[in-house]
């Protein structure tokens, strides 16, 4: 099977986000593989080990993403492609998807896996858009997948409920938490990763113009959520407390 994983380098989830003149400060921040993409990589490796074939990682980003790609290779993926998007102005989900579509139109993928969302942008757009553009089936937010005779049996998470789907390949799926437990890259895996092929492409290699993939959205403003304030503790007779609580919910929180 030709197995592909689309993956993104993101901020470490433990990193404190800082904003300076409307831009997110990246200096000194730690970066990781988007956690949902890690599920996708793990599942891809398991599918390859069961059905044979190759796992190729594909990432759109700058050269810094090589570290996260190498980590994916250390986990056990076979090869990787980094498509550099530094020339893209105002890049957004549309840009990433358009670049990926240009790459995938020349590939014969049996299955493409990705994360349900990226923990930075959180749009969940790239996977489904790519599938639509390539004209293949897609299922988002999967928590289990089994492949047999060109068909996939999938369990997907529907806001806490399950949906069972049978669908034919080629297929794009996005991974939800619970799909698997991603392995740690072993030391032999880390040592092998630097020898695995990592191809770097740019827009020219994909016959794309910068204008074609310019972002369609416009960010108006970026700001941090208001700081959480300490909770209020009510005191006194229980009846008085209940009355005060109801009045606070009505007049201050305005929720009832």
């Amino acid at each position: 099977m030709n197995i592909y994983v689309i993956m993104k380098r993101t901020f470490d989830t433990e990193e404190k986000i800082q904003i300076d003149s409307g831009e997110i400060v990246e200096d000194g921040a730690e970066f990781i593989i988007n956690p949902y993409d890690e599920y996708a990589i793990e599942e891809a490796i398991q599918l390859r080990d069961e059905h044979g074939g190759e796992v190729t990682l594909v990432s759109v980003g700058d050269e810094e993403a090589e570290k996260q790609i190498r980590t994916g290779l250390a986990m056990g993926a076979d090869k990787a492609v980094l498509i550099e998007d530094e020339d893209v102005e105002n890049g957004d989900q549309f840009s990433t998807e358009a670049i990926l579509a240009a790459y995938f139109k020349d590939q014969e993928a049996d299955i493409i896996l990705g994360g349900n969302i990226a923990v930075d942008g959180g749009s969940g757009q790239v996977g489904p858009r790519l599938a639509e553009n390539l004209g293949i089936n897609h299922v988002t937010s999967i928590v289990n997948i089994e492949i047999e005779d060109g068909k996939a049996k999938i369990e997907r998470d529907v806001e806490g409920d399950q949906e069972f789907i049978e669908i034919s390949l080629p297929l794009l799926v996005t991974a939800q938490q619970g799909l698997n437990e991603p392995r740690y890259p072993s030391l032999p895996g880390i040592m092998k990763a630097k020898k695995k092929p990592l191809e770097t492409l740019d827009l020219d290699d994909l016959d794309l113009d910068e204008d074609e993939v310019e972002g369609k959205t416009n960010t108006v403003e970026r700001y941090l959520p208001p700081e959480k304030e300490a909770g209020k503790i009510l005191e006194g007779e229980i009846d008085d407390q209940v009355n005060e609580l109801v009045s606070l919910l009505k007049n201050e929180a305005k929720v009832i």
Partner: peptide, 14 residues
């Protein structure tokens, strides 16, 4: 090195 950084991250996570 890149490998050592990758290893450190892995061991810390483990």
């Amino acid at each position: 090195t890149d490998e050592q950084q990758m290893m450190q991250r892995m061991v810390r996570q483990f």
